[in-house]
Amino acid sequence: MQLRWYQRESLDAVYQYLNAETGNPLVCVSTGGGKSVIIAKLIEELLSENPGRRFLVLSHVKEILEQNYSKLKAISPLLDIGIYSASLKRKDTDSQVLFAGIQSVHKKAFDLPPYDFVLV
């Protein structure tokens, strides 16, 4: 998938931050700017460096969960991807990449396995 210039710049800025800082990077992209694509490519690229990493991607609405899940599945169909969302009637827990509703996991966070990256 060919990224737009600002999507590539966003990812490059995240990598620069992760290499230089110890905090948490923040990426702001306007509506329709392709945040799902950026998330999917970030996960894909980080996994190409280290295939053992685990990701938790949180959202507050099921439509965004579905959109982010679908985009990553389209870009990397062989990845172990799951969804934990009461409204979507799925409660996967062992997936390498887990898309979860904040409301569904907030009281069960300690029941989930550890993750290397949490994206909100």
Rank of each mutant, 00 (worst) to 15 (best):
Q67W: 07
L72C: 00
P25K: 07
L79I: 07
D94T: 14
I81N: 01
K108V: 13
D80T: 00
L46F: 14
V61Y: 14
E49R: 11
A40I: 01
T93G: 14
A40G: 08
K91L: 13
I43A: 06
E44V: 05
V57C: 12
S10H: 03
G82A: 05
L47H: 02
S87P: 11
P51K: 03
S70M: 05
K73T: 08
G82D: 05
E66R: 06
P77K: 05
E44N: 10
K108M: 11
L11Q: 01
I39H: 06
Y84G: 00
E45R: 09
K41Y: 15
L98F: 09
V105Q: 06
E44K: 10
Q16A: 13
L56T: 01
K71G: 09
E63W: 09
S76T: 09
K41I: 09
V57L: 08
V57N: 05
K91D: 09
A20K: 10
E63M: 10
G82I: 06
S70D: 08
V105Y: 07
E21T: 03
S87D: 14
E63A: 14
E49P: 03
S95D: 03
A13C: 05
K89E: 14
A74E: 14
L78K: 10
V57W: 10
G23W: 08
G101A: 12
S36G: 13
A100K: 04
A13V: 01
G32N: 10
N50P: 02
T93D: 07
I38D: 01
L65E: 05
Y15F: 15
H106M: 15
I39F: 11
E44Q: 12
Q67L: 08
H106S: 10
S85T: 08
L46Y: 11
K107H: 15
T22Q: 07
R54G: 01
T22R: 06
R53P: 02
Y69R: 00
D94W: 12
G82Q: 06
G33Q: 03
V37Y: 13
L47E: 01
G23T: 07
K62V: 00
S36C: 11
E66V: 14
K62I: 02
G32K: 04
S95R: 15
L88K: 02
D12L: 13
N19K: 13
S48Q: 13
R53C: 08
P25Q: 06
L58N: 02
R90T: 12
I43G: 01
V105R: 06
I81D: 04
K108W: 12
G101N: 08
S48C: 10
G32I: 05
S59G: 09
E49F: 15
S85Q: 06
L72P: 01
G34D: 01
E44M: 11
A74H: 14
K91G: 13
K108R: 15
L65T: 05
H60M: 02
S10K: 04
V105K: 03
S104G: 08
Q103P: 12
L72I: 03
L88M: 09
L56P: 00
V57T: 06
L18R: 03
H106D: 00
L72F: 05
I75M: 11
Y17Q: 00
V27M: 08
V37E: 07
I102D: 02
K35L: 11
L26T: 10
F55A: 00
V105N: 03
E45P: 02
L56V: 02
G52A: 11
S30K: 10
L42C: 02
Y84W: 04
N24R: 12
D94L: 14
L79N: 06
L98I: 09
Q103H: 15
T31L: 14
S10C: 13
V97Y: 09
Q103S: 15
